[in-house]
Computed example of a mutant assay.
Amino acid sequence: MNLDEFYRASSHLDPKLTLLVAKAHHYVPINQLTIDKTSLLLDTNSQSHSQFATITLDQFMTRTSQLSPQVDLRTANNHQLIFGFRIVNKSIVFY
């Protein structure tokens, strides 16, 4: 999935939804975004001032607004391409 596909798929969602990534049988909060060549890496291991803060959809859109829409979304730990997402409770879960 690239940024353009995610923007189109999430354009009508609540901007307060938090962003998570599925790891094994758990959902882990995304708390850092990193650019690596043509990919945007979604990281779950970065510690912030308030322990492990979770990025919301609104924050994600603001932080990525200047990037090319063709940038791929990938996980930071193994650079696996994100294929989609689903809504679970009040969160967007990438898989």
Rank of each mutant, 00 (worst) to 15 (best):
S91R: 12
D14Q: 11
I35F: 02
F52T: 00
D36N: 14
N2K: 04
I87G: 08
L13R: 01
D4A: 12
E5S: 10
L81Y: 01
L73T: 02
Y27I: 08
S10G: 04
H79D: 08
D43S: 01
N2R: 00
F52H: 08
N77R: 12
T18R: 11
S10W: 00
L57C: 06
Q47E: 11
H79V: 03
L20N: 13
S65M: 03
S48C: 11
H49Q: 10
F52A: 05
K37T: 06
D58H: 05
T75H: 01
Q47Y: 06
N45C: 14
I35H: 08
N2T: 03
L19G: 04
N78F: 12
A24Q: 12
S91C: 14
I87Q: 15
L42Y: 05
L3H: 12
S65H: 08
P69D: 06
F52W: 03
T44C: 00
S11V: 09
V93Q: 10
P15I: 10
H79P: 02
H79M: 13
S46W: 07
N45E: 15
F85V: 07
H26T: 08
R8C: 06
S11I: 09
F60Y: 15
L42E: 10
Y7Q: 06
H49W: 03
F94S: 04
L41I: 03
D4N: 13
L20Q: 15
L19A: 02
L73A: 07
Q80K: 07
D58R: 05
L33Y: 11
F6Q: 05
N2F: 00
S39F: 01
V88I: 12
V28I: 15
Y7P: 04
I35C: 10
T64F: 09
F6A: 07
Q51M: 08
T75P: 03
D58A: 09
A53K: 10
H79A: 13
N77S: 07
S91F: 04
N89M: 05
I30Y: 11
L81G: 00
I82V: 12
D4Q: 11
H12Y: 01
I35P: 01
Q47M: 12
N31D: 04
N77H: 14
Y95T: 14
K37Q: 13
I30L: 11
L41N: 02
F60W: 14
H79Q: 14
T75E: 09
T34V: 08
V28H: 12
H26S: 14
V93N: 07
A76V: 00
